[in-house]
Design a protein around this nucleic acid. Sequence first.
DNA 1: CAATTCGGGATCTGC
DNA 2: TCCCGAATTG
Length: 766
Amino acid sequence: MSTGKILDGLNESQMEAVCHTGSPLLILAGAGSGKTRVITTKIAWLIENNYVRPEEILAVTFTNKAAREMAKRASNLNLLAGAATIRTFHSFGAWILRQYGGMLGLSENFRIYDTDDAVTLLKKAMPEINRQTAKIYVNMISRAKDYCYTPKMAQKNLFLQNKKFDEAYEKYDARLKQTGNVDFGDLIMLPVMLLEKYEHIRHRLQMRYKVIMVDEYQDSNIAQFKFLTGLKGEQNYLCVVGDDDQSIYKFRGAEVKNILQFEENFENTKVIRLEKNYRSFSGILDVANCIIKNNSGRLGKSLESVRGEGKKPKVNFFLNNNAEVEYCVRLIKDAVKKGTAFSDWAILYRTNAQSLAFETEFAKSRIPYRLVGNVRFYEREEIKDALAIFALIANDRDEVAFSRIVNKPSRGIGAKTQEKLIAFVRKAVYEKFESSENLKENSEYGFISVLSEKTEVPDISKKARKGLKEFISMIVELRKKLSFNENFEVSDNNGLLTGSSLGKFVSFAISVAGLADYYKNEDNVSGTRKIENLQELINTASLYESSYEGLREFLEHVELDRTLQSENDNQENNAVTLITVHNTKGLEFNNVVITGVEEGVFPLDSSEIENIEEERRLMYVACTRAKNELYITACAKRFRYGNWSQMIKSRFIDEIDTGLVEIEDFSMQGGNKNFAFKNKVQQKIRSDVSGFSKIIDHSAFAKSQSVTYQNWKKGVRVFSSDRGFGIVKSLEINAGEIVMRVQFETGEQKVYMPEFSTGDLEILKT
DNA sequence: CAATTCGGGATCTGC
DNA sequence: TCCCGAATTG
């Protein structure tokens, strides 16, 4: 393969970006400007020109999908690219911790706790708080880790007013350490600490990765920035690619300032802009630009389509969300009749909850669909139960896994007994942990080993003792079987659960642990389909080698990449894509329908200017996914929370210049007139608050306080000509502004800023 | 300790 | 509406 060939067809700035070396490089790449092509070509080009060896290249992305895609495309350009490290930030962090984590007391088989596990752990560390509070704290903890704040530092920085939080963070982290596991935040923060603390680790990694490339840089957080500065030595070449208009992960700590200030952070930065859009017809880009220009603080760029005008995007209004779904069915069926493929179509929505209506209706209408990033799968009870068995097999100190599975199915070990056992084991581990020189040695020392060795187990009932004994020997047995890689014949699961390789072991374990029978029964009684889901898990496990190493890989896969593997295998299938807008990052489709473009859905949260701007960027991302046709839909009524809510079209629709889109209003039927223009209140609020930009106020992290403002306070009854009767649910100071939430009889909840406007709200006499 | 009932809150977005 | 946690009962 000649150099000329891989560079063929690149435009001038793309070429410049590919062939640049030396000083740090910032590529500002607009949507659809061929950024993945630039990165992959750059990888191939660097290899071909012997700038570095393939294994000296590190490319980090934000999603597994992007990493897979990048690896595939780079290898297509140059086979040697297969030796480059192309991973997500988190999986790269995990890789480092697998090697050096022992120095921080991690088990070498550490597991990555998800939010749910973290909440469970925090609740155990602080029994006095309820689950909801624990969730809030866990969220704050992960935010703190996004900034690399340890418990001690957090007290001095972000969260200083909240003593209870400081306590929570400290207790949580201590307890997490004792399990030998990590959470998502640790995957970045702990490597940063290793790099800062240990010269030899830093040196080794800097020598290894001569070239560091980062995709979607606009969504990096402070911890990731520190990670990069730790990896980048004097001699390393750093190249980041991003688009400030596509920053959509503020809620998990992304800092746009990373990209805005890149030039200041890295001396002699070269900036290259990619402003030619190869993806979309200009009619689509015009709509996107119209919306995004309402944001402030942009680096600014002019995206130019090379594809001509194309068909005018369409905006459709419907009576309700059923009509919206039906419209999509019709639209796609008609198009397919005319010769487009199902796979040309993507249905986008703001929240996962919206997918269900499409799933059912598509199934009914025989439209094949593919649900992308259905995170929920790995959050299902039966899946988490099964995984807990394997987590405990891999890491004996996994407290969360132990308590999850020890009494399921019931072994007579209830909450009280569990508490005693956990306290007992933790004490034993802690004592050994303290007295031992070698931390690593202790990673195998936990629940199963302590409870099988020690005889002075606390006073628990006979029944519990018996159940515990069975449980322990079951885990011990499973471990033995796995290490000898026995041929597992599942005796009594009626042949329902089958797999190969590690899948065999997984199905065996699920049966032996009693989960198969337990859930088979539940399926029969309640008509759930949990056995099916377990089978799906086994299918995924079947792709891994039947060994400890295979098990570890399997667990890491499900922890870091929550898309089902079997789903990926079907990617070539001719099916409509159902996907959240967040998940479309980096993807493109021929035809896109953005659904639910209504206030309260998209934008979902309009209580702060900052949130609106983030939502607007999200809308921009959504629009720019479309290559050929773009549809935007909104409904006058939407069924949610078990109620019909009255909706108002999104402000983003109003921001589109008339003339750029074709509007059809199907919401007029049934006397529901002018839904499209029914947003007086909204417009008023908007015009009143526009122009107020907000200073970032970190105290907003702390729980906002209840307040009153003039006659407005919690519990006041109101009437609005638009939405009828309502009640003020709360009044609080949110980042310096008074925010009032009103619940209307329509089921809709609205946010007002009473300092500026309360629309036509009337206060009713009691 | 397990099974049942009851009431209130929930769903953002995701590594 | 549905699901979960708390409370109540056996």
